[in-house]
Amino acid sequence: MAQKVIAGVTVDVTEEGYFTNPAQWTRELAAEIAKEEGVQLTDKHFDVLNFIRERFAKGEALTIRSVGNSGIIDIKGFYGLFPGAPMKKAAKVAGIPKPASCI
């Protein structure tokens, strides 16, 4: 198990930088991780991150489609918030494990 110091806080992460303990997550850490990913977080980002964290906490599958149906943002907007690989980036910034979904 790897550890990483982000904004002065030590957190447990995987080799790829995904949190292994979502409870260690804070908004400050999210902002730092996002910066590393080249993303400047806005309130909209946090709405999406909170949605993703809640869904993960409930044990529900995380798919691009579920984010698109969240009522927070459409899929195009989601790609806009986290350019490139939105589901993976958002999961990393949201402090949850790497998504295991294929869709």
């Binding site: 698109g68 899929i75 195009k76």
Partner: peptide, 18 residues
């Protein structure tokens, strides 16, 4: 049940992502 969308919605998702 697995959250796999119908064909048109799937195509729209692909298009939305570029």
């Amino acid at each position: 049940k697995l959250d796999i969308p119908p064909v048109q919605e799937f195509l729209e998702m692909i298009e939305a992502g570029g």
